[in-house]
Amino acid sequence: MNYNWDWGILFRDPYLGWMIGALGWTIVISILAWIIAFSLGSLLGIFRTSSKKSLRLIATCYVELFRNIPLLVQIFLWYFVFPEFLTDEWSRWVKRDMPYPALTTAVVAIGLYTASRVCEQVRSGIKAVGEDQRQAGRAIGMTEVQVYRFVLLPNAYRIILPPLTSEFLTIFKNSSLALTIGVIELTAMTRQIEEYTFQGFEAFTAATIIYSLVTFTVMALMQQIDKRTALPGSFSKGAS
């Protein structure tokens, strides 16, 4: 291998600042997309298990649609195709005038895509809590909404904490897809540094370490939370 090593590059101006800023964008995309994915996914998960056939159908269609198209293609659909179906005014706003058009599009696309996966997790959690718990809740006169609020969801979230952690980490990794529409997040930045300095090896290594560190930190953190929230008498399953 014929390569000029220069690890110092990572700590030199402006590259250090670039990397930190890019990590910031990665985290911003991940957290905002997660907010969408978690709230919409939970709602869809409730729909998917509800007693109303129409709600179940809506959630099923959503899940099938969003998980059978590659995320990258979905990002392109939101970025290039969706604005064309709006009125001129709105189209201009989405393409140019809204704050951070590319970043916002990436957040929405990743959020909506991941919502379909969160929905399936929430559904499996509610299924795991069981039909009998639902009946027990109904039997003391609670409405369906109350049964979800006080019985099914608190238990379901506890059960699916490990897979939900994985879903968040999936978002964290998938945030790199934002680079395809020009968002300079962590992965894109390594590419940019490579092009500026030809020290690609160092930049890729740095990004790799950062991604791994964040992932392992989040997993360790969630394992602690999993232990803390475990009910007395039940054993903790640990993050997967």
């Binding site: 039997a139 006169g141 238990n155």
Partner: peptide
């Protein structure tokens, strides 16, 4: 039905206490 169920107690085979 919700109102009506609140006036009829029910006990299940597997207890179905709320575990949390």
């Amino acid at each position: 039905l919700d109102q009506m169920r609140s006036k009829i107690g029910m006990v299940f085979q597997n207890f179905e206490l709320f575990p949390h």
